[in-house]
Amino acid sequence: MEGILEITGGVFMVLGAVSLLVASIGLYRMPDFYNRIQIGTKASTFGASLSIVGVALIFPGWIPKLLAMLLFILFTNPISSHIVGRTAYFTNVPLSKRTKVDRLKEMSPGHLKKVKTKD
């Protein structure tokens, strides 16, 4: 009854929702803040983008607004995660104990206080 385009759009929306759920589960299960922020930002941005693509397939007339929305999400999510990550590092939020490499400390050892690790 419905076109193949609409079914594809629905499948895209479900995939986007699954990606958002993965973002939430990762936010819950990751060991320290820095891992949480990377999965939270990447997976949620990906999920929102997939959902927008799905809606665009279902209603092609909405594409201008959806394009603007996709642009805004792709612009703003990385900025906020960048700022939050920097804030966390400079307020000594502990890294995970399994952290192997800390490039920011290597690059500027004198300016930073020692960031503690925890398990």
Partner: peptide, 15 residues
């Protein structure tokens, strides 16, 4: 202020 915030503000504020 970080470079990323400054640059992105110049793009985003007109939007």
């Amino acid at each position: 202020v970080t470079e990323i915030l400054t640059t992105s503000t110049q793009v985003l504020v007109p939007m």
